[in-house]
Design a binder for these strands. Structure first.
Length: 216
DNA sequence: TGCCAGGCCGGGT
DNA sequence: ACCCGGCATGGC
């Protein structure tokens, strides 16, 4: 069967099983999404929420506030998200770029086209492909597929891609098989994380109770 | 209690 | 061009 059909069946099955995941639904606002995208690097989302709450409580959840703040003070606030020193530096560099390049205005930033904006993001120290794509998709609602460790695990375990596949291989795999639709990419990624968390764990090479088992 | 979490960078081979 | 250690808290 074609990848396209398989991926569409995966999607329908996951959506029916878990329901919409409501990841970063505009309620929080695009700026908060950008911050969260950095803080969640290799980190549990629950810890990120604590860090974001700290920023909110301190009245520092804005581009200008973070831009002006000392790095070590920022590190103190985001402590619960782990890697707080490195993330403080990464956050500062992202916000500096955001302020210098777009005056800290979301609308200016997302008025650029997807590809050039993606390349610019990738040139910022501390912003890799997943963080860049998360910002573009979840903050900007631009149609770019987000790949992560769960995506890799699920695809490999279902033998849809070879183990040596790169980030770009997987991104293309989805984008070439699905309609170019930010809403679908948004929900699909969140659903992959959900099924991966529940059934596709690192040390247990079994998918027996996974809702996607029938596709194996 | 050890393992894992919505990565990325830099240095060594 | 890969491979690997470092970064760090909190939850189960």
């Amino acid at each position: 069967m074609s990848n396209s059909k398989t991926l569409k069946r995966y999607y329908n099955k996951l959506l029916k099983t878990f329901g919409p995941q409501r990841w970063w639904p505009a309620g929080d606002g695009p700026f908060e999404v950008m911050v969260g995208a950095v803080l969640t690097q290799n980190t549990n989302w629950g810890n990120v929420e604590k860090a974001i709450n700290n920023l909110k409580q301190a009245g520092k959840l804005s581009a200008t506030a973070i831009h002006k703040m000392r790095q070590d003070q920022l590190a103190g606030l985001i402590r619960p998200s782990g890697y707080f020193n490195i993330k403080a530096r990464r956050l500062k560099s992202l916000i500096k770029w955001f302020v210098d390049r777009f005056d800290g205005e979301i609308e200016k930033m997302f008025s650029r086209d997807l590809q050039s904006l993606r390349e610019e993001l990738l040139s910022v120290k501390g912003i890799g492909p997943e963080t860049a794509d998360s910002i573009l998709l979840y903050a900007g609602n631009l149609p770019t597929f987000v790949v992560d460790a769960y995506t890799y695990r699920v695809l490999v375990r279902h033998r849809l891609i070879p183990e040596e596949s790169t980030y770009h291989d997987m991104k293309s795999f989805f984008e070439e098989s699905l309609p170019q639709d930010a809403a679908v990419y948004n929900e699909y990624h969140a659903l992959l994380v959900r099924v991966g968390k529940t059934y596709c764990k690192p040390r247990e090479p079994t998918c027996k109770d996974c809702p996607l088992y029938e596709f194996l």
